[in-house]
């Protein structure tokens, strides 16, 4: 039964990937990518990784797809990095792809049985952290440094994105989008979805400590709502050099590092969560992180600043 389910999910996944690669139209490939992202998220559900499924649906498929769709709309001409492939190259590439697939499949089949696992180790300390979702515990406690630096990666990407903008647009806002003004249907949808989405984001954030969900998923949803509002003309895009943008970007890492320092004093180790107040501290840090993530995601999708500010 589960094999059948796996098959019904895996086959469209492969078909989608083949379509994305094979279709001649870039736009069709992009729409295919959205559908692919949806099936990928379902595959993650089937793999019992609901946290990943939410992240994949929101960031991997959703935000990435939106970003690329917008890029496709803005590009005046395609940027080419070489010549179109001839039949020989195609055959060679196909052979290589088949070889890689087979080799990788064989390697996966060669993995040891029973599989080594850290699952038990992740569960044991959960009571001292006051959270029930082991994936959240990995992200915020055991491998907290990874999570902290991953936010820094987002920050670096935002700095990089601004560095790639034009001198003229420095400190300004991204170009409006869509350029011809929003469609009434979109405005209607935005008005309808934004309140509902806000409630759902709050729910996701709160439930993340004990069940699938959490700051990444909630932040992406909030970012998506903000982007929807921008597209519908209901809210402005954030000004990249603005006072509040800078503060919002910095607050996440700063709060995380501050909590780490408190951990030295209260729990004897940097990034340790002192037991009695572990959960409230974690929630506070995750809130701050969520603020940074939302702003970073919106800036990354909206693109580099191109309009001058009136300052």
């Amino acid at each position: 039964m589960t094999e059948l389910l796996a098959l019904t999910l895996a086959l469209p996944l492969l078909a989608g990937a083949l379509f994305i690669v094979a279709t001649a139209s870039t736009r069709a490939a992009l729409f295919g990518f959205f559908a692919f992202g949806l099936f990928l998220a379902l595959a993650w559900v089937a793999l019992d990784a609901v946290d990943v499924a939410l992240t994949e649906a929101a960031i991997g498929g959703g935000a990435t797809g939106l970003l690329l769709l917008r890029l496709n709309g803005r590009m005046r001409h395609p940027v080419s990095l070489g010549e179109p492939a001839g039949p020989r190259l195609k055959i060679a590439a196909g052979l290589l792809a088949a070889l890689v697939t087979l080799a990788l499949g064989a390697l996966l089949l060669a993995l040891p049985e029973p599989a080594p696992s850290l699952a038990a180790a992740t569960v044991e300390p959960l009571p001292t952290l006051g959270i029930g979702n082991p994936v959240a515990a990995v992200l915020i406690a055991y491998r907290a440094l990874d999570t902290l630096l991953e936010i820094v990666v987002l920050l670096i990407a935002v700095v990089g994105l601004r560095a790639l903008g034009t001198d003229r647009g420095w400190g300004g806002r991204p170009v409006p989008w869509p350029e011809g003004g929003p469609s009434p249907a979109l405005v209607f949808l935005a008005r309808l979805l934004i309140p509902a989405g806000l409630v759902f984001a709050a729910y996701l954030f709160w439930v993340g400590a004990d069940a699938p969900g959490g700051k990444f998923q909630a932040s992406t949803l909030l970012a998506a709502l903000w982007l929807l509002a921008i597209m519908a003309g209901l809210a402005p895009a954030p000004s990249s050099g603005g006072r509040w943008t800078g503060r919002a970007l910095a607050i996440g890492p700063l709060a995380f590092i501050a909590a780490g320092a408190i951990g030295i004093a209260a729990a004897g180790s940097f990034l340790a969560w002192p037991e009695p107040v572990a959960k409230p501290m974690i929630i506070a840090v995750e809130l701050a992180l969520a603020v940074s993530i939302v702003v970073a995601l919106v800036l990354l999708v909206a693109g580099p600043p191109e309009r001058e500010t009136g300052r």
């Binding site: 469609s183 009434p184 249907a185 949808l189 309808l192 979805l193 509902a196």
Partner: peptide, 16 residues
Amino acid sequence: LLVLAGSTAAGQMLAR
């Protein structure tokens, strides 16, 4: 209801 709203709006926009 959410899908209804979403697909209606998407249909409108695609048509436009």
